[in-house]
Amino acid sequence: MMRKPLLWLPMVLGLGLFVLFYLGLENPGQRIINSNVIGRELPEFSTQVAVEGVEPVSSENLRDGNPRLVNVFASWCAPCIQEIPVLLRLRAQGIEIDGIAVHDRPADISRFLAENGNPYRRIGLDNEGRSQLEIGSSGVPETFVIDREGRIVYQHIGIVTEQDIPEILARLGGTG
């Protein structure tokens, strides 16, 4: 057996792989799925009116020449409440923010905005997640930086915190 140690190599490799795959089965792990639309032409989409008198969001009005943020949120999403103060601060700095509410109801959206504040200029209702799928968003909250051609240049997954502001401002500024 000891004369040809090399002969044992394939078996050892095979066993090693088996152990590796077995551990992988036990722990599948979540991965962040980034949008694949970043840097590409924005697919066509539109949303419904969410709040009376407020214009909804569409791919067309994202191409109007103003860089901005698009925030995907929902009134039933607790982390979305948490990031509203940060979005309000960005808005106070003159950043334009459009909101897309997924799987929501107009009455709930209005209550959400009344309770937490309204950082949005446009708000769209996306009850069937169509615009969410079009831009490659996989959950709430997510924040997209849109350049003046209406292209996605950056996707932030999860809550926007104070620490994320410099990155977001840099991405917005880089679009000019």
Partner: peptide, 10 residues
């Protein structure tokens, strides 16, 4: 269509 939006992982 889905890969265009979410990448191969989907």
């Amino acid at each position: 269509w889905l890969i265009t939006r979410y990448g191969d992982f989907v």
